[in-house]
Amino acid sequence: MIDLEGGGRIFLDVTDCQPDDVHPGLDVELTFRRIHGGGGYNNYYWKCRPNSASTDTASTDTASGGTGTPIETRQA
């Protein structure tokens, strides 16, 4: 579960890290990913990942993430 900057919460998969990296209070940012696909169609949704080292968290299409309690990475 992620607390978003500016308010609101969302359940998201955590990605681009190892399970042991995930803990309450982890700083994360949103990232838009392909979740699954089939029959020539792909379905996309957000995931989150540990904040990249860059201090520039502005992104062209998604809001920055905040700290929160990340959920377990879902098995594909």
């Binding site: 359940f11 309450p24 979740i35 379905n43 996309y44 949704y45 309690t69 959920i71 377990e72």
Partner: peptide, 22 residues
Amino acid sequence: HPVMGSVSAPAVFALAATRAMD
């Protein structure tokens, strides 16, 4: 959610468990 699916009951309470452990 049509893409994300549902969060299961174990998942919701697992978050409470990791929080309490932390």
